[in-house]
Simulated assay, not measured.
Amino acid sequence: MLRIEGLNQFYGQSHILWDIDLKIRQGSCACLMGRNGVGKTTFLKCVMGLLPHKTGEVWFDNQNLNKYATEQRARLGIGYVPQGREIFPLLTVEENLKIALSGRKDKLKHIPSHIYDMFPVLKDMRQRRGGDLSGGQQQQLAIGRALVLDPKLLILDEPTEGIQPNIVKDIGEVIRKLNHQLGITVLLVEQKLPFARAYATDFHILNKGRLVAEGEISQLTDDIVQAHLSV
């Protein structure tokens, strides 16, 4: 589904990502993990074309994305929810969702009903401004907006950050439904180890910009956690 080969990225003279080779298998829920500042968000932005990479290739569904702009990657079927959500606070919930319709291949003009089925709170609050929602509701709005694109791959950058515990569980169950029932492949950055173990199928760990461990989530041992994730 998604294949990264020899990815290197720099900020000025600082080498941020080092020779990353990584594969996300179709139908999986892969968790990208690592301590703060190791390059996780930078990696996602390179995948989405929001940041240029120095060398390497990004492949999605056997297409090389290197020359594709972010909008083109979205139209190919990649949904992206950035860290901090980045909704439009002055637009209504409904307007936030409708913005994503322009990225659909089928030119659909209305919000798919399953978005509101999955997030009933968005239907109840569809005429409220995005900035008036709670943090958890804004996260649901951000995920819903990405799903309006009808993605094959959904990328989530720390979807549980700053979210109240009851909404964290709701978001986890939505991810499980998207992955298991709808067949959407998921790649998420997540710091909460119990959340990753509950909802991910695979893990990939970055340390100082390098891929240092990966495997099925059942292979994420305490020794690996102690070596690469413990603060």
Score class of each variant (00 low, 15 high):
125 M>G: 02
137 Q>S: 11
120 P>Y: 13
181 Q>F: 12
93 V>A: 05
93 V>C: 07
185 T>I: 09
180 H>D: 14
136 G>L: 08
168 V>E: 05
85 R>S: 04
158 E>I: 07
156 L>D: 01
165 P>E: 11
108 L>R: 14
103 G>I: 00
170 D>W: 03
140 Q>V: 06
129 R>D: 07
136 G>H: 07
156 L>H: 03
190 E>A: 10
125 M>R: 15
82 P>V: 08
175 I>Q: 04
160 T>K: 01
158 E>A: 08
107 K>V: 09
112 P>M: 09
97 L>E: 00
95 E>A: 11
144 G>V: 04
134 S>F: 12
153 L>D: 01
157 D>A: 13
141 L>T: 04
176 R>T: 14
196 A>D: 03
160 T>N: 07
108 L>N: 14
187 L>C: 10
167 I>P: 00
194 P>K: 10
131 G>L: 13
126 R>H: 13
91 L>V: 08
147 L>G: 01
164 Q>A: 15
177 K>L: 15
142 A>W: 02
138 Q>I: 05
142 A>I: 07
156 L>R: 01
83 Q>L: 11
157 D>W: 05
118 M>W: 10
82 P>T: 09
146 A>D: 04
126 R>I: 05
103 G>Y: 04
194 P>W: 10
78 I>T: 03
167 I>F: 06
102 S>D: 11
119 F>N: 00
81 V>I: 13
140 Q>E: 14
138 Q>P: 03
81 V>L: 12
170 D>N: 14
